[in-house]
């Protein structure tokens, strides 16, 4: 019995031995050839929505970004917004104004009043931007990766700065799956090299060490990167990364709750959470290394 206790004790010691993990080790750099400034049109019309494929009318057309907003794009926005004071820096946070939500006294609802709210934390190990006190610069290796550590306010602020907006959940889902009710943007089956998800073995992850990391926008385009073959994984409308990589903020504000919703799954999601109808939610001030966004604008 004593030997058993001793063995268990030694096992625990070995497992808990402090091994330094470099969470900010330099990632491989790949140019995907996909332009993050491109948009596609989504026509008006019905589509099959949700897990049970209900016919859902969507009576307007719109345009949506082909990729998530990148670190480079967000840095450019922050610099412009800092220059005209629509974003300010205080308490190590970039903040912007939000007019507040209508409060409906729901159970557990937290009132969101008008005021300045966090867009991004300025000093965070997982922020892929550098701030020298004057301007933001994307860390070069991460510049074409999706912008993360951005709150719902920060995502909304970016889109509205350019006259755009966040997609509603319905707009996001139709853009992701088209009209035929498929489970994933590219079809009904998921292979490891379709998307960046938990243990998908992409060149950016090391599950024995730092875990999973984002992939550059448009990474899963059928190209081969240093021997890693990806599958072309666009949605029917040509959007990239609508499953995996980062959760994407959506616009809806629902009565009796202050939570905001995300779609698409992320780099740490199990396969089932990459299906286009799966939702995640968090407070609008929530920031994460695995949450980003893209914008929409009204169509013709």
């Amino acid at each position: 019995m004593k030997k058993l206790f001793l063995s268990l004790f030694i096992l625990c010691l070995v497992l808990s031995a402090c091994q330094e993990v470099d969470f900010n080790s330099t990632p491989p750099v790949f140019d995907t050839g996909v332009d993050p400034n491109s948009w596609v049109s989504i026509p008006a019309g019905d589509f099959l929505q949700g897990q049970f494929k209900e016919v859902m009318p969507l009576d307007h057309s719109y345009e949506i970004m082909v990729t998530d907003v990148t670190n480079a794009q967000y840095a450019e926005y922050l610099n412009a917004a800092l220059a005209d004071d629509s974003v300010t820096i205080s308490d190590n946070e970039a903040r912007g104004y939000y007019p507040g939500d209508q409060f409906s006294s729901g159970r557990h609802e937290v009132e969101i009043t008008s005021g300045d709210y966090i867009y991004i934390p300025v000093k965070d190990d997982f922020l892929r931007l550098e701030y020298d006190g004057t301007i933001f610069t994307p860390i070069p290796e991460w510049s074409n990766h999706p912008m993360t550590m951005v709150s719902w306010f920060g995502a909304k602020g970016y889109c509205e700065y350019y006259g755009w907006r966040l997609p509603t959940e319905l707009e996001w889902e139709k853009a992701a799956r088209g009209i035929d009710g498929r489970a994933f943007p590219w079809g009904d089956e998921l292979e490891r090299n379709n998307a960046n998800y938990l243990s998908s073995r992409d060149p950016f992850e090391n599950m024995a060490s730092f875990g999973s990391r984002t992939t550059p926008v448009g990474f899963y385009n059928g190209s081969t990167y240093a021997g890693y073959q990806t599958l072309l994984s666009t949605s029917p409308y040509g959007l990239y990364d609508m499953a995996g990589n980062v959760w994407q903020w959506t616009a809806n504000i629902y009565p009796k709750q202050h939570y905001r919703y995300m779609r698409g799954g992320n780099k740490d999601s199990y396969e089932n959470n990459l299906r286009v109808w799966v939702r995640n939610n968090a407070t609008p001030t929530f920031t994460s290394p695995a949450v980003g966004f893209r914008c929409v604008r009204d169509g013709d």
């Binding site: 497992l15 993990v21 969470f23 190990d125 997982f126 060490s209 999973s212 994460s288």
Partner: peptide
């Protein structure tokens, strides 16, 4: 632990749980 630094803890707890 934070979301970004959770992997080592996940690896250890998963291994111990499996044992």
């Amino acid at each position: 632990t934070s979301e970004g630094t959770q992997q080592p803890l996940i690896n250890k707890t998963t291994l111990l749980g499996d044992i």
